[in-house]
């Protein structure tokens, strides 16, 4: 049972104003955006803990799960039937907090408390599950494990997952809605939103993106070419030639080859340049290239090592035109 929801808060929509947020049963929708964008307000409206929303029949994990006085086990069982309690204990075991249930809730670390609350939320019977930053308190080394138990624990139910973390969004989401300043800016499959932000605002919100200003020199069908700092960038767009334009593409869309002779292929954009910066970014590595303009690429640590992508290294960057959007400015 899919839902198409209008969300407004307060009544004048000054904090949150979204029309037609689409929730599909069996699908995990990530609501992504910077802090203060209205994501938690959105979730609280859906959960019904904030009045005035189209409250769903949903299990809800608040951003800061609060454990009450008593044991962790007592807290995990709150509101659960006997059968659900059994399920929550199985989930707790898989989340690595099964042994901690006999201890006072106040003795748990933030990450452990979050896992106990997550087990309780996932064990609930409601058809929808709402999770507010469900991995925020987890150590980097536990995150992926918790994420996989989480996905499993949903058991195919539809979920709305709020996060401001790119990695969390990429791992947990099927689809992604970008919310900035209380407005829904873009909605689509996670990979598409990351690699093809529809606007500069979305590009800025989803993080490491390439936003390059120039002048549109050619328009052919759905393609535009943009001239910027000696580079020609091909991308999707319908900006008339001669107008200023802005090319936007995700750092994940950039493929790197060592040297300047690299790789024939279907990619329309091939730029030769030099690595200027290398930065560890979660499990990935961000590579900044000077190719006349600044281009950012995201690669795995393995690729970085094999290609020896260090500052000063000569590289060829390629990007499919279909992964670039040219917007008017």
């Amino acid at each position: 049972m899919n839902e198409r929801l209008d969300l407004r808060f307060p009544a004048d929509g000054s904090v949150l104003s979204i029309d037609g947020l689409e929730l599909r049963s069996g699908e995990r929708l990530v609501v992504f955006g910077p802090n203060g964008a209205g994501k938690s307000t959105l979730l609280r409206l859906l959960a019904g803990t904030l009045a005035g929303g189209p409250a769903l029949e949903a299990a809800y994990l608040p951003q800061r799960p609060y454990l009450f006085r008593g044991s962790a086990g007592f807290n995990m069982g709150l509101g659960l039937s006997a059968e659900e309690a059994v399920r929550s204990r199985q989930l707790a075991d898989r989340l690595g907090v099964g042994e901690l249930l006999i201890y006072a809730a106040s003795s748990l670390s933030g990450g452990e408390a979050q896992r106990v609350a997550l087990a309780r939320t996932l064990a609930r019977p409601e058809p929808w599950v709402l999770l507010d930053e469900p991995l925020s308190a987890q150590d980097a080394r536990d995150r992926m494990k918790v994420a996989s138990v989480l996905i499993d624990g949903l058991g195919g139910r539809g979920a709305v997952i709020v996060t401001h973390d790119r990695e969390e969004a990429a791992v947990l989401g099927d689809r992604m809605a970008v919310v900035v300043n209380g407005h829904l800016l873009q909605e689509g499959p996670v990979a598409e939103v990351f690699s093809l932000p529809l606007s500069d605002e979305v590009a800025a919100a989803v993080g490491i993106g390439n936003v390059i200003d120039g002048v549109v020199i050619e328009g052919e069908g759905p393609l535009n070419s943009l001239r910027a700092g000696g580079l020609t960038i091909w991308g999707l767009g319908d900006v008339p030639a001669g107008n200023p334009g802005r090319a936007v593409f995700g750092a994940e869309s950039v493929t790197l080859f060592r040297g300047s002779d690299g790789a024939a292929g279907s990619a329309r954009n091939r730029w030769v340049g030099q690595v200027t910066e290398v930065r560890q970014l979660g499990r990935l590595v961000e590579i900044v290239i000077d190719a006349g303009v600044r281009v950012v690429a995201l690669v795995t640590p393995g690729s970085q090592e094999v290609l020896q992508l260090q500052p000063g290294a000569g590289v060829t960057a390629t990007v499919k035109a279909a992964a670039v959007r040219v917007n008017p400015t």
Partner: peptide, 27 residues
């Protein structure tokens, strides 16, 4: 803290249980 009442609301408890949990919390 506000997180406590948000959590209490999220648990979908009966009125009785809500009161009981609250009273133990503020013992």
């Amino acid at each position: 803290p506000p997180a406590a009442s948000e959590q209490l609301a999220a648990l979908a408890l009966s009125g009785w249980e809500r009161g009981r949990v609250m009273l133990v919390e503020v013992w």
